[in-house]
Write a protein that binds this DNA or RNA. Structure first.
Length: 755
DNA sequence: CTTGCCTGTCATTTC
DNA sequence: CAGAAATGACAGGCA
């Protein structure tokens, strides 16, 4: 990082995963007051002074760590001068002091960009070009060693330098327009001959962005910013805290998905707050004297600050930036009530075009392809050391979000000359993704809106039936109807198949129409008999009647009461009997119901029933045969009867199984459809969540960027600068050209990776 | 008379 | 290896 001015602690921001963990409030706060914090370094070294916290090296940051940090910060008695020192600390010549514990210094040194050539630091651009622009990994690598190991001399030096700055008018006075011009010139020179990044520059040349204000003093356009924070150094720590807390309410309804507020609250048992007051994450950071202040008080403080400073800001800008009236500015800006959807009154398109009109570019070392789908984005956003939604805003995400819009294929062309929305791309992607999701849902008959209804309906509606004529009636009703039909079909019989089956001990396949818990066993892969068809099979098998003890007895008697001559042992079929069945005598009816084997057995005068022949175990069966003196023909018939009878039941069971398999498959399809609809619903929810998070990040970006000031005290032009999320977790202000370069590089990378 | 479904039976395989 | 079970194939009955 060769741009010393960009390396000021003031501009060192860390947004990384702290955002998703709610830590963004803290880190942003520190960033706003110009402190870089390496949390790990801080925690490990247990350095209490705030100024020794180096923000930059991001890492998994547990709530316990955060709790410790909070407690430590609670005890801070940070003098405003000290805080301020970190805001504008620099050498008298304008270069950043080498002793300042910022990653910027390290980068500057590591990149060999210790220029400091211009007393106003105008030459720093070159460093930025060479150092940071080349390889972001370098940034992290170099920045990492920089930590808060400050010696007392360092600290003293910082204070001295700060006083020198003050003496030299390090405030707004030194940041004159000429300096800005020089810087712009250098920037222009660097950009000359470059192909990249001209798009924004050309358009940025004539800034037509409605969010850009014209400074009354310098006549220079500067991006609209959060009213009240026009002068960053004017913000006290407490004010920053309040502002941030108001901006990012971190109450129990916090929308940060990973922010376990309750846990956080519990993690700070020392916090004593008035009952009913929303637990404030940042409150502990406030001086103890402020702790009794409730949120309302802080809010009022913030309001007063904002109102005072908002008077310096163009109302139109504020309106444009925050899509609200100036009167409701604070409300619209900071009333991000947890339960209130982000930008309630801002559509996605508005968010893409209106509410984020600054051309922010914050590319990272891992810029995602613009065409990255929403869902895939969610996955790809996962950082190396965190999972789930906690990682939603990893570097990759930031890169995706803040990627230069002109490089984003999904950038809304309607933005025209206006500065595109850095978040527009992903927001649009999310929208597209959602739209496609909707399409998918519609195509597949899964309306996400009605998903909940679907899920309930799925319990009874298969939505898929192998029977084309089968209406999507409920499964249970279908079964009931089938059952009833089978019952009616067996109305001629006084017995039920279920009892018949229950008598068939040897059947083995016990599941039949009795399986009333059939539905309760839903999802079970096991054998689930189908109600109706089994019954029909059983009912319609006349031979089954003989499996009933009492019918067996009747049939037995009936068999032997019949005249042998009336039966054809081999062909007992009575073609005309069926039509006369209604007028038949019971004996004739039963006789008709007998199977061929029954008739054969009767003809052969088999002394026991076919039921016994078929269902008796082998031992008992053999025992039975030994009791009687049977001819060879009889024995052969008996064995055939047994074989055929068993095979008949086997065939029935086989058919049942086949049907059950079909039914189970149907049920599986239903379950899968249900799961699918559920997943679709979840996806919609996730997309919503992502969208909200992106909106927050967008707002945050705007806010942070709007607060940045150059040495002239002027805001940076979003056309010329962009925040970039570095691989080391810090957020750095860099020239647009670099951002564009990086973006293209990453884009190419992405394309190659896909190939 | 044809057709589709149900059922029984056989042959064969599998357990 | 015998027997039971499983299953595909086929045929008859029937609406």
């Amino acid at each position: 990082m060769g741009h010393p001015r960009e390396l000021r602690g003031t501009e060192m921001l860390s947004l990384k995963k702290y955002f998703t963990e709610g830590l963004i409030q803290f880190t942003i706060l520190l960033s706003l007051i110009g402190v870089r914090v390496d949390v790990d370094t801080y925690l490990n070294s247990q350095l209490p002074p705030l100024r020794e916290i180096i923000l930059g090296q991001s890492s998994a940051y547990t709530q316990t760590q955060f709790h410790n940090l909070r407690n430590t910060l609670d005890g801070f008695q940070v003098p405003s001068t000290e805080v301020s020192a970190w805001l504008v600390h620099r050498d008298p010549d304008g270069s950043v002091s080498g002793t300042q514990p910022s990653a910027g210094i390290a980068l500057e040194n590591g990149g060999g960009l210790q220029d400091g050539s211009g007393p106003d630091g105008a030459v720093r651009e070159s460093g930025a070009e060479q150092g940071f622009g080349e390889e972001l990994e370098d940034l992290g690598a170099v920045a990492a060693p920089v930590n808060g190991d400050l010696t007392k001399e360092d600290i003293d030096l910082i204070d001295i330098l700060w006083r020198q700055d003050i003496d030299l008018g390090a405030g707004r006075e030194i940041f004159d327009y000429s300096h800005r011009q020089k810087e712009s010139e250098v920037d222009k020179e660097l950009s000359d001959g470059r192909e990249c990044g001209d798009g924004w520059r050309s358009t940025g040349g004539q800034v037509t962005n409605r969010n850009l204000l014209v400074d009354g003093e310098t006549g220079e356009s500067f991006p609209a910013q959060v009213p009240g924070v026009e002068d960053q150094t004017a913000l006290s720590l407490e004010e920053c805290l309040r502002l941030l807390e108001a901006t990012f309410p971190f109450g129990e309804n916090s929308e940060f998905p990973a922010a376990d507020v309750s846990t956080l609250s519990e993690a700070v048992p020392s916090e004593s707050r008035p009952a009913g007051i929303q637990s404030s994450l940042l409150s502990p950071l406030l001086p103890e004297t402020e702790s009794p202040f409730d949120l309302e008080q802080q809010w009022q403080d913030l309001m007063s600050i904002m109102e005072m400073q908002a008077m310096e800001v163009n109302n139109t800008t504020a309106e444009t930036l925050y899509n609200g009236t100036s009167g409701d500015l604070l409300t619209s800006n900071y009333n991000l009530a947890p339960n209130t959807p982000i930008n309630q009154n801002v559509s996605l398109h508005q968010a893409s075009l209106g509410s984020c009109s600054q051309d922010f570019s914050l590319f990272s070392s891992e810029i995602e392809s613009p065409s990255m789908g929403g869902s895939s984005a969610l996955l790809q956003l996962a950082p190396d050391n965190s999972t789930g939604l906690n990682s939603t805003f990893s570097s990759a995400n930031f890169s995706g979000i803040f990627f230069p819009p002109q490089l984003n294929s999904t950038v809304n062309e309607t933005a025209g000359p206006e500065l595109p929305d850095p978040l527009g791309g992903l927001l649009d992607e999310a929208m597209l993704d959602e739209i496609s999701l909707m399409d998918l849902a519609i195509e597949e008959g899964f309306n996400p809106v009605q998903a909940s209804q679907l899920e309930e309906e799925f319990d009874s509606d298969s939505g898929l039936s192998l029977d084309s004529g089968h209406s999507p009636a409920s499964l249970s009703s279908s079964e009931a109807s089938s059952s009833s039909s089978s019952s009616s079909s067996s109305s001629s019989s006084s017995s039920s198949s279920s009892s018949s089956f229950s008598e068939e001990g040897a059947v083995g396949y016990s599941s039949d129409s009795e399986n009333v818990d059939f539905e309760e066993a839903e999802g079970a892969v096991g054998y689930q008999p189908e109600y109706s068809k089994f019954c029909r099979m059983s009912y319609q098998d006349p031979s089954q009647l003989h499996y009933l003890p009492y019918l067996e007895h009747v049939g037995h008697n009936h068999t032997y009461n019949m005249a042998p001559g009336t039966l054809d042992p081999e062909e007992p079929k009575l073609p005309s009997v069926g039509k006369k069945s209604s007028k038949e005598k019971p004996s004739e009816f039963l006789d008709k119901q007998m199977s061929r084997d029954e008739h054969r057995a009767r003809a052969m005068k088999i002394p026991f029933t076919n039921d016994k022949i078929i269902n008796l175990p082998v031992e008992e069966f053999n025992e039975l045969l030994s009791k009687y003196q049977l001819s060879e023909a009889q024995l052969s018939l008996i064995r055939d009867i047994r074989r055929r009878g068993k095979n008949k039941m086997a065939a029935q069971n086989c058919r049942k199984r086949k049907l059950d398999t079909i039914l189970n498959l149907e049920r599986d399809v239903e379950d899968l459809q249900r799961d699918k609809s559920k997943l679709l619903r979840e996806k919609v929810e996730f997309l919503k969540s992502i969208r909200q998070m992106k909106q927050k990040v967008q707002n945050l970006y705007q806010e942070v960027f709007g607060r940045l000031r150059d040495e002239n005290g002027q805001p940076y032009s979003p056309n010329q600068y962009a925040l970039q999320y570095a691989s080391d977790g810090s957020v750095i202000l860099i020239p647009r050209t670099l951002a564009d370069q990086q973006a293209r590089r990453q884009e190419r990378k992405q394309k190659d990776r896909r190939k």
